[in-house]
């Protein structure tokens, strides 16, 4: 629990400090990054802690976003609306999950791809409700009980808080017995099954939680962008989030968030400077693989290790001991 506390304090400090150094656009971008980070963390949960790689996760994001856009025309209470989004996307995940988790690995990837595409087409075809391929404006305004949230700074803090809450929730789940069992299943399904755990229930639990969180991110995005379109559920968006998770570091909670920030910054700024941005983006991905530390977060740990170990040597502490702890963590 202490660990969570420290992380949280650091996160809060980070969130508070950022507007001091950011420009208007920087604040907008950071806000978007918080939302994308929640989304990436939700996918990171099933990829890193349950071994399920989904290529249809944007489907849940889309459900959350469209819930706010469509139901928001009739319901103005933001808490209620957010709750409805989370519930609908969570339920969808639960129901589809029952069927999907029967498939494994690559088949799971592809069936979720089909699921995402299904929602994409649904949003596209239900023109009377969703505006079809042209998308629709979001009329709902975020109001958490202390006035309407409209300015970039207010949005920034709300999304920052949402990010921290999502992080804490995920951390709690991962540290919980259920979370540990889920991870155990990923590492050795047969053994956990033999130990008497109902493997599917735990997988389903993780998948539902992840879907609900993705829907939450989507609903926040809807408020932030005030426009939704079927692209929110396209498989390319799912693919991008998957890339965010992988470059950030699979198997960690915070890695996907880092992946999201790096990816969005790259996507945004390389394309500003050169029309050849896909080439540079591709090269970065290839280089990341070749460096082969498995994600930026592991990379940072690696550098941290070098610095830290040197200090340890100065203090005369045995190096391998520290290393071992690192592994245990």
């Amino acid at each position: 629990m202490k660990k969570i506390f420290i992380y949280t304090v650091l996160l809060i400090l980070l969130v508070l400090a950022m507007p001091l150094v950011l420009s208007d656009f920087g604040i907008n971008l950071a806000t978007e990054i918080y939302i994308m980070s929640i989304f990436a963390m939700s996918l990171g949960l099933i990829m890193g802690y349950a071994g399920m790689v989904s290529l249809g996760h944007a489907g849940f994001f889309g459900i959350g976003a469209y819930t706010v856009a469509v139901i928001g025309q009739y319901v103005s209470n933001s808490y209620l609306l957010l709750l409805i989004s989370v519930v609908i996307s969570g339920l969808t995940a639960l129901i589809t999950g029952v069927v999907f988790i029967r498939t494994s690995k690559f088949y799971f990837l592809m069936i979720t791809l089909a699921f995402g595409q299904l929602l994409y087409v649904l949003f596209w075809q239900l023109k009377p409700w969703t505006g079809g391929a042209d998308g629709m404006s979001v009329s709902a305004i975020l109001n958490l009980g202390f006035g309407e949230i409209l300015s970039p700074n207010a949005f920034y803090y709300v999304m920052g808080v949402a990010f921290i809450i999502a992080y804490i929730l995920l951390r709690l789940f991962v540290e919980s017995p259920a979370g540990k069992i889920t991870k155990g299943i990923m590492e050795n399904e047969a053994r956990m099954s033999a130990l008497g755990y109902n493997v599917r229930v735990y997988k389903l639990l993780a998948y539902t939680l992840s879907g609900a969180l993705a829907g939450f991110a989507g609903s926040l995005y809807s408020y932030f962008n005030v426009f939704v379109s079927p692209d929110l559920s396209s498989w390319t968006f799912s693919g991008q989030v998957m890339v965010m998770v992988i470059i950030g570091g699979v198997g960690t909670l915070f890695g996907p968030a880092i992946g999201a920030s790096v990816f969005i910054c790259l996507q945004n700024f390389i394309s500003t400077y050169t029309e050849r941005w896909p080439m540079i983006m591709g090269a970065i991905l290839v280089i990341l693989v070749l460096i082969g530390k498995g994600g930026i977060i592991h990379w940072l740990r690696y550098f941290k290790d070098i610095i830290f170990l040197r200090k340890q040597t100065d203090e005369g502490a045995p190096q391998n001991q520290v290393k071992k702890e690192e592994v245990v963590n």
Partner: peptide
């Protein structure tokens, strides 16, 4: 597997460009 995804995805970006 995940590295494969990233690598071949990156390659497809480069070749397409």
């Amino acid at each position: 597997e995940l590295e494969q995804v990233l690598l071949t995805f990156g390659l497809s970006f480069i070749i397409a460009d």
